[in-house]
Computed example of a mutant assay.
Amino acid sequence: ILGIALIIAMLALGIMFPVYATKTTWIYVVFVYIFFASVTPMWLLKTPRDYLTTFLFIGMIVAAVIGVFVSNPTITTPAFAGFKSASGSYIFPTLFVTIACGAVSGFHSLVSSETSSKLVENEKDMLQVGYGSMLLESLLAILVIVIVGALPNLKASGVLDSTLANMALADTATPFTKFSAGVTGLVAQLGLPQSWGLCIMTMFVSALALTSLDAVARISRMSFQEFFEVEEGQEPSGLVKVLTNKYVSTITSLVCGYLLSLGGYVNIWPLFGSANQLLAAMVLISLAVFLKVTGRKGFMLYIPMVLMFIVTMTALVQAIYGIVMKLFVTGGFVLMVDGLQLVVAILLVALGLMIGFNSGSKLVKEK
């Protein structure tokens, strides 16, 4: 109760006395936060913060549902705009590496094993947590399609004021901006000032993004440490002890994330989507092998496993081709942006082929 009251008080304080800073400053603030979220015990920071964020998440969904039903917006966006987007991307494989979390997500498999497992008191509760989360994400996905699809009509009908509409429909607007502005316009029909609504909705969406950031910071640190694990009973060398130190491994992971952040949202998203879905394919392959060697049936995993592998490999090869074309043909190659992405994409392809070959050979064996 105290936490929720403080959240409301901070929102009010932020609306009355807003703090303006550059994008670079906010990046530094976020990285400092996720450093502490990665190294502190789960119970001290991440667990209570995630718990309080749940109320923001539910509040955002409730506000969006009420807004949609009260305003009853008309979707004017065409249901199908062709197999090729204005930016030149084809619906395959782009669609399948963009629509992630609610369908299949490798990142969620890491979250469930590395963090969710430490937050659940009773293993039986995982059924409710997992299934409930899936239903909520599906509901949120439908709300996003309705709200973003109705944005042009919301502007034409005057539901969104001109400032909000121009911001939401600008070419530079991110999906977060479009969704926040759309929900704000719908909820404003209930009498809430749009400037207040935009601040609150943006805070809701930002809080959700932070739950992903602090989770991925912690998971990347733990994954980095696992690279240098030694056999049980062996004494790790001095270098291994340094590299597996939680502060050193966290800083190393965050430096890699910071370098990728310099590339900007638009450049990073296709690579992130491909990496996420490739990880999902790897998880499905690993589970299929586990079920096979333990004498259980796993045939239901084979089709999604192969499909995700083909999709992500196609997307990564396309990304590599596009960067190579920049380097040798069209120009515009930036070393710290395109060069870094090229290295990551090649490593991901190599990783996928290695795991696919090793695990696939086990699946075709009789025993």
Rank of each mutant, 00 (worst) to 15 (best):
G3F: 12
I4L: 15
I4W: 07
I8G: 05
I15R: 14
P18D: 08
K23Y: 12
T25L: 08
S38I: 05
K46L: 15
T47P: 00
T47D: 13
I61Y: 04
I61G: 00
V70G: 00
S71V: 13
N72A: 13
P73V: 07
K84N: 06
A86D: 14
S89F: 13
F92K: 03
S112G: 06
Y131H: 09
L136R: 09
A141M: 09
V148N: 06
S162C: 00
A170W: 02
T172M: 02
T177C: 02
L186M: 06
P193G: 07
P193Q: 07
W196V: 14
I200Q: 03
L210E: 08
L213S: 12
L213E: 11
V216C: 06
A217D: 10
M222A: 12
S223W: 08
P236K: 03
V240P: 01
T252L: 08
L271D: 05
N276K: 04
L279S: 12
R296S: 13
F309Y: 12
I310W: 01
T312Y: 05
V317M: 11
A319N: 11
I320V: 15
M325L: 13
F328N: 07
V334Y: 05
Q341V: 01
V343P: 03
L351M: 12
M354Y: 14
I355M: 09
G356N: 03
G360E: 03
S361D: 05
S361R: 15
K362Q: 14
V364C: 03
